[in-house]
Design a binder for these strands. Structure first.
Lengths: 353, 353
DNA sequence: TTGTAAGCGTTATCAC
DNA sequence: GTGATAACGCTTACAA
């Protein structure tokens, strides 16, 4: 592989002159520039940016560390990140941690070694050691989706408390009183906040949440388990609140397994929308988060921090969620006699006598 | 930031000794190792792998260049790639080309400059200049999903001809004769092959494909347009074949816009399954491709090539597809009088004696 | 078992 | 306008 030296010899100039041509730096005469460019073309020279990075201490590489790129929410976020990063001349490494803090730490260690300029992190824990690690090595971080204890990073997220509150209100307005919440892991802000929003809405309506709160993982199997447990309760809840998209899918499976249909037998609401492509088939009522914009915003914050040497104060950007009511919510059984099927996209159903 | 030199001074040894400790290379006495490790811990030393890469000519970085990570098919593939790469100590850069060959070339140029060890490419064209670029710089490529003209790369893909053939057979067996195909761009092997499989099945059944073949993009809007056009035909087709998942979504929208329901009014089949999480809601009959395994297999091929200096012959790995028949196919109108609703969501029924 | 010297490919600094 | 020199942080080759 040709190097600056090879190009320099071929063009009859010095290596530094070649460098100047490549980077459009300093003054170069028309003729030397032409000679150099000809040599570059002839040799098929490709600059080695590793060497450049070693000198300049800028790798022009960011990293997106998330729990699972397969989650459509994070896929959209990834795309937002990549588009924004690419537009600014950065490439993006991607890392899946599967909600495993050790895996996260190992990745961060590796990214540090790779001289990654900045990291976009969806932390697996509320007080991530990884943020400290990065901070100690002067690598800026933007934390995505979740709030954390540390104050050493910018944060881009949505208001999970409000989102959950809105969603529960939809159910309350339709007469539901016995609503079970299927929550994520303790200590993850989105999981905690969504339960908090649920409680706030319930309590504001003077309702008890006793025995109605389940906590598990943000996964499909966990959603299945929690929903199965919730449906054993007597009296049975008339509505379920799934705190993320995977949990919602698990809950749907549990309902199906028991031969219960939505919204006839039960209503179901969830956090996170289905992927954009499938919006067509969407049936679930949800609070949607602007994943793509979150990614873009996070990159903007990161680049701003990379751009200036001054240590600006850390910012928390909270983006609005969107409430989308679809066919998965119906009237609660006890009030459905008085008014028919409000809010459901699908047609009215039989009132039980 | 501390360097090997700093660590060496602190531990009272030479830089190379530090290097040996870090890399577990050569013989080191117990005591020096302890001294060095202590110094590393005290200084919070993080090795700079950029410098290492400059010397060793191995960046331990791969790149996944795809059309759109947002397509669930490629998302699964990405996850397969990341898992396999990570297990082997490699990180992965991701790049979206949006089926744009120029964007692809720009990315490849950048990856070359970054000394990427190998590239996993979903090419935007059948004769990608990018593969030549990479080949010329001795960077191995594995082409994913699509066949290409060039013979300078390993290929991992599925048999689109056979897959389409299988799918059309499902329709033919249910009496459909007027089946329209909604195809992708000319010159992309998967697009061409799926149309070829369709034609083969139709012709084998003695049916004409005249006016029934539409070509557009692998996008939702294009699917909408093609389906809308197909539904204008007289007599109207009794079934539609969407050649990828996005096209299928567009086609569904077109059907809905015209007030046609599936499978009552029309049957619909497609290439590519819905994302795993949503399999629950799946209604479409599809040929599914093992995206995750394709990603893993591709990484295996790439690493094998990186591992040995001998130029092994290029391989083409063709993975099997899976036919999944769901509720979106029904009997063709003209035969539905004789037997009701075969092949619906409910399982197989008794063979008529 | 440990150290010396040199170089990977690039660019900052200073000189002409 | 252009060039010589050194340095970024690390490791290969060769000594000791």
């Amino acid at each position: 592989m040709a190097t600056v030296r090879d190009v320099a010899i071929r063009a009859g100039v010095s290596p530094i002159t070649v460098s100047r041509v490549i980077n459009n730096t300093g003054y170069i005469s028309r003729t030397t520039r032409d000679k150099v460019e000809a040599a570059i073309a002839e040799l098929g020279y490709v600059p080695n940016v590793l060497a450049r990075s070693l000198r300049s201490k800028r790798s022009h590489t960011l990293a997106f560390v998330t729990t699972d790129i397969t989650n459509p929410f994070f896929t959209s976020m990834a795309r937002g990140i990549e588009d924004a990063a690419s537009a600014a001349g950065y490439t993006v490494l991607f890392c899946n941690t599967d909600e495993n803090a050790e895996k996260e730490d190992r990745y961060v260690q590796l990214l540090l070694q790779k001289q990654t300029d900045g990291v976009l992190l969806v932390p697996a824990k509320s007080s991530p050691r990884s943020v400290e690690l990065l901070h100690d090595q002067d690598t800026p971080v933007v934390v995505l989706d979740r709030a954390i204890g540390s104050l050493k990073a910018d944060v881009v997220r949505c208001d999970s408390v409000q989102g959950a509150f809105d969603l529960i209100r939809v159910l309350l307005e339709r007469g539901h009183q016995r609503i079970a919440a299927l929550g994520g892991p303790m200590g993850i802000s989105t999981a905690d906040d969504r339960i908090a929003g649920y409680e706030r809405a319930m309590h504001a309506a003077g309702l008890s949440t006793q025995d109605l709160i389940f906590r598990g993982q943000f996964t499909e199997p966990s959603g299945f388990e929690m929903a199965s447990a919730a449906l054993q309760l007597t009296p049975r809840p008339t509505a379920l609140f799934a705190t993320n998209n995977f949990v919602a899918v698990g809950a749907s499976r549990a309902l199906e397994a028991l031969g219960l249909s939505v919204p006839t037998d039960l209503s179901l609401v969830a956090f996170d929308d289905v992927p954009p492509v499938l919006a067509q088939y969407a049936f679930l009522s949800v609070v949607a988060q602007p994943a793509y914009q979150m990614g873009q915003e996070a990159v903007a914050l990161l680049l701003a921090r990379l751009g200036s040497e001054e240590p600006a104060p850390y910012r928390e950007v909270i983006l609005p969620t969107t409430l989308i009511v679809r066919g998965s919510v119906g009237l609660a059984p006890d009030v459905s006699g008085s008014a028919q099927s409000a809010g459901g996209t699908s047609g009215p159903q039989e009132t039980p006598g």
